[in-house]
């Protein structure tokens, strides 16, 4: 069996006296979606920051393709093909699609000091990359990113990461701020990225979204992995309860229901 693209072995992270992550071990394989579930404050963001090179783990090792690596900066991680897409797409709302797609890696034409930004080429590549993900409404690279819907912006950011050779895609709550249709759209794109052979780490607290695309699930509670299971091993209710820390969720739901019932009767 081949090595996973990315593996975390016994990662611990503390900030001064505060332990944020304990003994995290995870593997991400090509063509697989790992869903990282957890309530607010469970340590998801810290874990993402370790994966993307923002934080250095206090102890434990990170391996890529079976060989140990260490990320000293976000540039290190992105240089190895790890791309992070944040909730709002991390793009520039006031820039055109073609311009924002190539920030920091602009295509140029001409030579020497007369290198000119090749706007036409930038627009063509950007539009083609987005259309490859099935978004056909976008046909003009001169449009401003801010004019796109939330889902389209996420898709643009994912398309950009794929174009620049990402092997591991970390999606930080990509559906959190989206409506139902938009979220479905992003989920479809996650599936396509997976089919293209990328390893996807999908961070969310929305269990239904996770179940729609996930192959492998890890539930994070107070900095530890509380459960690690494969698709089909657990039901939606079981996962929700796990995330909320035991059976609390079912009780809470019952409580709310009875409240609603009382209100109705009154």
């Amino acid at each position: 069996m081949t090595h996973p693209i990315l593996a975390l072995n016994h990662i611990n992270k503390s900030f001064g006296p505060i332990d944020v992550l304990h003994d995290i071990s995870l593997t991400v394989r090509a063509g697989e979606v790992l869903c990282l579930l957890g309530d607010n404050g469970a340590g998801k963001s810290t874990l993402i920051k370790i994966l993307s090179g923002v934080h250095i783990p206090t102890s434990g090792t990170i391996e890529m393709d079976g060989a140990p690596v260490s990320f000293q900066s976000p540039r290190d991680a992105s240089g190895r093909g790890i791309a992070t897409v944040h909730q709002f797409g991390g793009t520039f709302p006031l820039m055109s699609i073609g311009r924002s797609f190539f920030v920091g890696a602009e295509p140029t034409k001409g030579w020497g000091p007369f290198k000119i930004f090749d706007r036409k080429k930038a627009n063509e590549i950007a539009i083609k990359s987005i259309r490859d993900f099935g978004i056909t409404r976008i046909d003009d690279g001169e449009r401003l990113v801010g004019g796109l819907s939330g889902g389209e912006r996420q898709s643009l950011a994912i398309a950009r990461a794929v174009y620049f050779g990402a092997r591991v895609l970390i999606l930080d709550e990509p559906t959190a701020a989206l409506g139902i249709k938009q979220a479905a759209h992003v989920l479809r794109i996650v599936n396509q990225a997976k089919k293209k052979g990328l390893a996807v780490v999908f961070i969310t607290h929305q269990v239904t979204h996770a179940m729609a695309v996930g192959d492998h699930f890890a539930v994070l509670i107070r900095g530890s992995i509380a459960a690690d299971f494969k698709k089909g091993d657990k039901t939606r209710e079981e996962i929700t309860d796990l995330m909320a820390g035991g059976s609390a969720m079912a009780e809470l739901e019952a409580e709310i229901e009875s409240d609603a019932h009382h209100a109705h009767v009154a």
């Binding site: 920030v103 920091g104 890696a105 930004f117």
Partner: peptide, 19 residues
Amino acid sequence: GNWIYAMGGDKTSARNAGV
């Protein structure tokens, strides 16, 4: 010029993108 626009939009993202 493209870097100028990107920096005005979001300096951290621009830096992470290699500007």
